[in-house]
Amino acid sequence: MGRGLIIVLAIVFGFDASAHAQTAAPPSRFVNWTSAIVAADWRDGANRPIQAFDNARRDLVKGFLAAGFPRANMVDYSLRPDAPQPVAASAVVEGINAAATRGTSGCLLYFTSHGVPTAMVFGEAPRMTPDMMANIVRSACGTRPTVVIVSACYSGIFVNALAAPNRMVLTAASRERTSFGCGADETYPWFDGCVIETLPTATDFLALAAGTRACVTRKETERGVSPASEPQLFVGAEMQLRLPTLRFSRPSG
């Protein structure tokens, strides 16, 4: 092989390696995190079956996988009783705890459901109160960096019970307000749809929270609904320092 050809091949393969380095996603910050996404209801306000919660669960899984969360440590559940293989609320909690033994660096827990002023629907089990959710999070995640997202009416009731230095809590509404989009004609609850819409371009959880809240405000303004749901955000002192370093994985170009 001539020297000139060798140089040409070296240049070609060098450019190819450079292009690959530019497009490959960086190592994920969440490779050893646990994640759980739970659709805890399956009905509209008139108790009729709908798909919005399960649609959200399905596409939230896709979105968080694309952001760098590993499938091996991710569980997702639908609590609808008419599923081919129904899952009990107790099995969901057991599954979250089991996943947390595999992904030990941090936790992402996402619940989407209907809420009332004192609790959240959790399948056919008794409604989940703030204290009950706090116990689940404490048992599974302990002092690890933890992000809890609750999509439900009145979901601001969970903020005080979940607040801790190592946690970020994002809710679809304040403790006095309903959220929107849980009807048969909706693909997702509006808040969940905004998370799904924002995830592909969000750089981290703080950007995800800001983009989601802006999206909810836009949707509510466009549809002319009131009063506004007022999504809530809490970030503990430890997480204020840690969150900017927990960047989602994206191809660099």
Score class of each variant (00 low, 15 high):
T143P: 04
S139L: 12
D76P: 01
V150Y: 00
R80F: 13
C107K: 09
N160G: 06
L108R: 00
V147R: 08
P130C: 01
V159L: 08
P130H: 03
V116G: 10
A72L: 08
N73Q: 12
M168E: 05
T104P: 10
A125Y: 02
V159H: 04
T118L: 07
D76Y: 15
V169S: 02
R138Q: 15
A152N: 05
P86L: 11
C141R: 01
L108K: 04
A88R: 15
T104W: 03
E124K: 07
N97C: 06
A88Q: 14
P145D: 03
T129C: 01
G115A: 09
M120Y: 08
E94K: 15
Y77V: 04
V116Y: 11
V121A: 13
M133P: 05
P130K: 03
A152P: 02
P117K: 14
V148P: 10
N135V: 14
L162I: 07
I96V: 14
Q85M: 08
Y154I: 02
A164D: 12
A119W: 04
A83R: 13
S151G: 11
G156V: 10
V121H: 03
G95L: 01
T129H: 00
R80D: 15
F158N: 01
V148A: 11
N97R: 14
A91V: 00
P165V: 06
T101S: 14
T143F: 09
I96T: 03
A152R: 01
V150R: 07
Y110Q: 04
R127L: 15
S151K: 03
V93D: 06
A164K: 11
G106W: 03
T129W: 01
A152Q: 00
C141W: 05
P70M: 04
M128L: 15
R71F: 13
V148D: 07
T101G: 11
S105H: 11
Y154A: 03
V121C: 02
N73S: 15
P84Q: 13
G106M: 06
V121G: 07
I149M: 13
F158M: 11
A152Y: 02
L109F: 02
C107P: 09
P81T: 09
I96S: 06
L108S: 09
E124F: 12
L170R: 09
F111Q: 08
V93R: 08
S105K: 14
T146Y: 04
V116N: 11
G142S: 06
A164G: 14
T143M: 12
T118E: 09
A163K: 02
R144G: 00
Y110W: 14
A91Q: 15
A99I: 01
G123A: 02
S90D: 15
A98H: 12
A83Q: 13
H114N: 11
M132L: 13
V116K: 13
G115S: 10
S90T: 15
A89W: 07
Y110S: 10
A140G: 00
T112Q: 08
Q85Y: 07
S105F: 05
S90H: 11
L162Q: 04
